[in-house]
């Protein structure tokens, strides 16, 4: 009865919708329009020749797009399996202990609040061939120094900090979900003799399945947005463009190579890919939600 009168609705919703439409939806559709133009340089914004699907056709023959796509999918797999996986293990462990839980929670989440730029620079200091942390460790052990950003290793070394940084994020979300499970459920389980691994597998996991699904979706959309860390760690996809992600390659084309239309086409592709993968995953993971 309070909310029968619909007039205040406008006052509540309009400001948010205005900002959202002008600064998110309009640019988004404008960007789609740009992807059909040939815009030479950011100075030529607003103009540009109509070239139809040329920019999209160009993507099919661009080898670096292939590499970027492969790397992005690789990052996505790592994010879903390794990142969310480690986060889940850590959360289950922290949930099972009493002493120190607060300490671990603080420490694990910490990298999330640090800027990716700072972490990128930090890992630069770790990977440096001469005098980097990793090679100094190897040296102490009497081993040969390793070129961490070689053709073969680079993509793993660039992914490592990205994955490492956000484990804490999913950890906190999952832990929160675990804390929400009522204590009685575990007590009943104990009486029935369900303990340890079985308890986790048959009780905890199904109960937080929704939370895990949220994490997986966030991990997927997050891995499509990866930019800062690879850009600082290996600018221009060093070595040889092998560590380009769709995001960094879009930036390279738009802002360095100054072919704005092509960059727009890549960013449209990023969104389409995101929609497609999220949709598929949601279909795949369709699962009865348990209400408790």
């Amino acid at each position: 009865m309070i909310y029968k009168d619909k007039k205040p609705l406008f006052i509540f919703l309009t400001p948010a919708l205005i900002v959202l439409f002008i600064f998110l939806y309009y640019p988004f559709f404008r960007n789609i329009a740009n992807s059909f133009l040939d815009i030479k340089g950011l100075g030529a914004l607003g103009g540009g020749k109509f070239v139809g699907l040329d920019n999209y056709v160009r993507m099919t023959s661009d080898k670096t797009i292939g590499i970027s796509l492969k790397n992005t999918m690789f990052m996505m797999t790592l994010a879903v399996v390794v990142q969310v996986g480690i986060a889940l293990i850590l959360a289950l462990m922290v949930d099972s202990i009493r002493r120190g839980a607060q300490f671990y929670r603080t420490v694990f989440f910490f990298p999330v609040v640090v800027s990716a730029t700072a972490i990128g620079l930090m890992f630069n200091l770790f990977y440096a061939y001469n005098g980097g942390l990793f090679n100094q460790i190897l040296e102490k052990l009497g081993k040969e120094p390793v070129l961490w950003l070689s053709d073969k290793l680079a993509i793993y070394m660039v992914s490592l900090p990205v994955i490492w940084q956000y484990v804490g994020f999913y950890f906190v979300i999952i832990l929160t979900g675990l804390n929400g499970i009522p204590e009685e459920i575990y007590e009943y389980a104990l009486i029935d003799g369900v303990t340890g691994f079985k308890k986790t597998w048959y009780i905890s996991l199904p109960l937080i399945w929704d939370v895990i699904k949220v994490c997986i979706t966030l991990a997927i959309t997050g891995s499509l947005k990866v930019f800062d860390l690879p850009w600082v760690l290996a600018p221009n996809g060093a070595p040889k463009g092998l560590t380009h992600f769709l995001g960094t390659y879009m930036y390279f084309n738009t802002f360095i190579s100054q072919s704005v239309g092509y960059g727009a086409a890549i960013s449209v592709f990023i969104v389409v890919l995101g929609l497609f993968v999220s949709f598929t995953v949601n279909k795949l993971f369709k699962h009865e939600t348990i209400v408790y």
Binding site: L17, L20, I22, F23, L24, Y25, Y26, P27, F28, R30, N31, N34, L42, L45, G46, T221, L224, K225, F227, G247, M250, Y251, T254, V260, G263, A264, I266, S267, V268, I270, V271, G274, L275, S278
Partner: peptide
């Protein structure tokens, strides 16, 4: 409308936003 826009990466809007 709200949920959908979470999917937009900054890359897909930055150039028009720059122009605006």
């Amino acid at each position: 409308v709200f949920a959908g826009s979470i999917l937009f990466p900054a890359f897909s809007t930055i150039v028009p936003i720059f122009k605006m």
